[in-house]
């Protein structure tokens, strides 16, 4: 329901958010229903021709089954099964180098798996023809670790980019939408800055505004908390949760920051050595009996995962006659 005009949403589908309605009402209070639904109808109808999906659909938004993927000789995933439920925040956690980012790229259809399927909103993403894949991607947002902003255009143009590409909205409408999205991440005042003038945290917030520019059904966050100062960390944590709830999004967070992620996630999958080791709510994982999960969730230095990369005994290594660091 729109907090400003008190009008109920017309329930077209789960993506038609109360959040958006309230924002739109704020700059056109008496907007008729067709107008408020219009940007959504365009995208939804363009994407798959249907926009009557109900919230109560129990089918997970993303269903991964038996996923196998290798890079060169190294097996990254070996039979991974993951369900991402609609309108929830699902976190995928694991130590560095477990291929968490790769998983997001597999979900986004940027990489092809060796085996297994990734079903996004009922469609096998790796079996889709290119144009259908691109149409589906319009409804998927992704926030990259680096922000991945286009460096030759300013903040405003970066957020406007997907709108200009995929809609034929008027310049005035685009301006309003961009300012709304920037307002939501608290950076309306930074619209004229170039990406090189932004701090890491700001760049990620701009990337977030860009990711939600087209009101997607889901957002994937790639390591959103890495290398953030405590303030921007807190801002981001709050933003991700709020956006998810207000816009009825589905969020996937890939991260190894246990505290922050556990704070906002509804469900966590822990991945290591190409397999899902355990999954459950943050509380369940915190109380897990598995030594590995315990070490990871509580950040213990010693446990099944060793601090040292495999190497011969230190004393042996020291006194071996060697040249140039090699035996």
């Amino acid at each position: 329901m729109c907090p400003e005009c008190g009008e109920l949403g017309d329930g077209l589908d789960g993506h038609y958010s109360d959040w958006r309605q309230s924002r739109l009402c704020s700059f056109w209070p008496g907007a008729p229903g067709w107008w408020r639904a219009w940007p959504l109808l365009r995208l939804e109808a363009g994407a798959d021709g249907r926009y009557t999906m109900s919230d109560s659909q129990a089918e997970p938004l993303v269903k991964i089954r038996g996923l196998r993927f290798s890079r060169g000789e190294k097996r990254i995933f070996d039979g991974v099964d993951i369900d991402i439920q609609r309108h929830r925040v699902t976190a995928i956690m694991g130590p560095s180098g477990t291929g968490k980012t790769t998983l997001l790229k597999l979900i986004g259809g940027q990489l092809q798996p060796e085996a297994g399927t990734v079903i996004v909103d009922g469609k096998d993403i790796h079996a889709l023809p290119l144009d259908a894949l691109y149409k589906l991607r319009i409804r998927m947002g992704m926030m990259f670790q680096s922000g991945a902003l286009l460096t030759d255009i300013d903040v405003f143009e970066n957020v406007a980019y997907p709108l200009r590409e995929h809609t034929s909205l008027s310049e005035e409408m685009i301006r309003k939408l961009v300012l709304l999205k920037l307002e939501a991440v608290g950076l309306r005042g930074a619209r004229d800055l170039m990406p090189s003038e932004l701090s890491g945290g700001m760049a990620r917030r701009v990337a977030l505004a860009r990711a939600v520019a087209l009101d997607p059904m889901m957002i994937m966050y790639d390591e959103p908390f890495t290398g953030q100062d405590p303030i921007s960390m807190g801002v981001l944590v709050e933003l991700i949760r709020e956006l998810n709830d207000a816009s009825r999004l589905t969020s996937i967070i890939v991260s190894h920051d246990v505290q922050e992620t556990a704070e906002i996630a509804d469900h966590i999958y822990v991945i290591s050595q190409g397999k899902v080791i355990e999954h459950g709510t943050p509380e369940e994982l915190m109380d897990s009996q598995s030594a590995w999960v315990k070490q990871f969730m509580h950040g213990l230095p010693d446990g099944p995962v060793r601090f040292h990369y495999p190497a011969p005994d230190l004393a042996q290594d020291f006194f071996r006659h060697s040249t140039g660091g090699r035996p």
Binding site: K105, G108, Q110, Y134, K135, R137, I138, M140, G141, M142, F144, Q145, S146, A148, L149, L150, T151, Y161, P162, E165, H166, A207, R210
Partner: peptide, 14 residues
């Protein structure tokens, strides 16, 4: 290297 190309792909821009 800065994932801008990936970012474009994920924005459904070739």
């Amino acid at each position: 290297a800065t994932e801008q190309l990936s970012g474009l792909e994920m924005m459904a821009v070739d």
